[in-house]
Design a binder for these strands. Structure first.
Lengths: 344, 344
DNA sequence: ATTCTAAGGACGAACGTTCGCACGAACGTT
DNA sequence: AACGTTCGTGCGAACGTTCGTCCTTAGAAT
């Protein structure tokens, strides 16, 4: 292991003081072409890279961004985590930052992880995701005035930077798509009312139905956990309705519900697409493997990641971005599960 | 933002020198019960946490472990990444380490990322995964004598620490399982011969077949990319064989191939399970959602992560573990895709 | 009483960087 | 010829920690 090359090594070789090297490398001073050449040569020959610890200590910045995600144990899969991580890691590197991962604690001492990272000066800012209403992390960080950017929104009265995907617009698109396919009776499977994201998405359904002039039967809206099991069970409930009220279309606010719905529809002897149209949300990587493929709303995760990091880096470098909230639109990926409806 | 609490603040409050506080906190010295109480009180009241940068600078350790994973663009999904990350992040925290993510570069300057992280003293060690034969990262790190532990193996003549899952044993299990179900003609879908992992898994198939006393038809082994498409196409090729040579069982070395196989079997009018048995590898989270569910080999990822981190932390703290290679066994998760075979 | 020992704790220095200021020389201006 | 002004550098200090050494003092041994 070759011992570390420091500023002093470079300076000695170039015949200048080490502070001069430091300043030149950060473009803080002008030097004569001659010394500049000598310094650059020395840097190149020795392969000098500034020591992070020394720099951190002096500047009080670590060039590290903290992130922690909520593990999804019930479904064992987070369809967008890898993509999101890839995107923020990549974007962070462009600005010389790195992503630091730390465990997501379920208990209420979740905040101590954040507090410790702040107090030890380990990181410069946080990326948050999976926000809940009255999210304690947001409350803490706002109170400490510590930089962070969220993926997703929380209480509207809290003022902070976030990037979000418009789930309302998404479900409007999905619902309208089913309407265009000729569906008149469309049901919706959603999370419980205390979920902010779920509420927004459901609103998109309501709006699209209203716009289409369709009166909603209250039995068409079923809300519980976003599991395959609930999707299966809820769909059976829907199919038990008398034929004149039985929905022919089902929009869901998450793919797992749609998968359960597809299973139930098939088990009951109906044909997906031509008899019952179904849509999901997230465009999880495997829903194209189902047969038929599941129509679903794809979030522009790469863009979310890039913008999130850009916002945070801007904040960290002092310039306050104008827009505090940035809303992106999902894309409806149409596959067989919502096509070929035949009315009778 | 409250200004940072330093050792000096604590020392002043406790009425001792700051070096004494430092040493006490690290259990390097004994102090009288009286001063110990005063110091501990001061630490608690001020909420002191040691500044990472200062410590790093002095000790030349960052308590940071670098990791970079290979994005899988073709399948858009890495079935085990989330679990692996969760596991290493969690395990690292137990030893006061954190995981630092950095981008995986496809080009051949992939090594500069590693070099830079080392030269800037940013990290203490690496976790590697997705090794290839003659992996340049392994070569570099061995040459620099820089600490790392790999998930997966590479050239057998290279001596380094790694944790691996026994794919050969896995495919032995899967193949034997099909044999037990009554299958006589069993095919295998695999990666190209240059894949080390693929070769090992395929060997498991060969061994199990030999043990069962079944002569392998060379047309039963098809190798190419691990995509759904190839699985589909290869299975069609298999089903085109004359009936006496046509396989009734198909083992695959990765789930995506099995998914393609299931699709092909269904499209050709065969029934999965009772007419054609299929197994996958990885137990990707969604394969239980298929109908029928896919029998697959689950890697003990949590264990892999924990052991990987433990090995690395041990290395970093000076104690050389005895075992350089640790091999774990996958678990066969049996579902409908390999059950109910009816011979005729 | 003197010396030895060990424990409790203080002290200066160092890690590698950045920051602020000072200094000399070269320059153009009165 | 004396004067500000820039430009190109050097120098001391500081960030917060840990490491090695040294100084007390009390108690035990001579």
């Amino acid at each position: 292991m070759p011992k570390g090359i420091t500023l002093k090594d470079v300076a000695r070789r170039a015949g200048v003081s080490y502070q001069t090297v430091s300043k030149l490398l950060r473009d803080e001073i002008k030097v004569s072409p001659d010394t500049r050449a000598r310094i650059e040569a020395a840097v190149a020959e020795l392969g000098y890279k500034p020591n992070t610890a020394g720099r951190s200590l002096r500047t009080k910045t670590s060039l590290l961004i903290g992130y922690s995600w909520k593990p999804n144990f019930q479904s064992r899969v987070n369809p967008i985590l890898e993509q999101f991580l890839r995107s923020i890691v990549q974007a962070a590197e462009q600005s010389n930052y790195h992503i630091l991962l730390f465990p997501y604690c379920i208990q209420d001492d979740m905040l101590t992880a954040y507090r410790d990272l702040i107090r030890t000066n380990r990181i410069d800012g946080f990326i948050l995701s999976d926000l809940i209403y009255d999210d304690p992390r947001v409350e803490l960080l706002l109170e400490l005035d510590f930089p962070f950017v969220a993926f997703g929104s929380s209480n509207p009265e809290w003022e902070f930077f976030y990037v979000d995907v418009d789930g309302r617009a998404g479900l409007r698109m999905a619902t309208s798509h089913l309407v265009e396919q000729g569906h008149k009776r469309i049901a919706a499977l959603a999370w419980p009312p205390n979920s902010r994201v779920g509420k927004a998405r459901l609103n998109g359904y309501l709006e699209a139905m209203q716009k289409a002039g369709i009166q909603i039967d209250q039995d068409w809206i079923l809300r519980s956990e976003g599991t395959i099991e609930f999707g299966y069970q809820a769909t059976n409930t829907l199919l038990d309705l008398p034929e004149t009220r039985r929905p022919t279309g089902i929009v869901t606010i998450v793919d797992s519900l749609a998968i359960g719905a597809m299973r139930a529809v098939t088990d009951r002897g109906f044909i997906i697409g031509s008899e019952v149209g179904i849509t999901g949300f997230d465009d999880s990587p495997f829903v194209q493997c189902l047969s038929p493929g599941l129509t679903s709303l794809r979030q522009p995760i790469d863009e979310v990641g890039q913008i999130t990091i850009k916002l945070l880096v801007d904040i960290l470098s002092g310039k306050k971005p104008e827009e505090r909230q940035i809303m992106l639109t999902p894309e409806l990926i149409i596959r067989g599960s919502s096509l070929g409806f035949k009315q009778h």
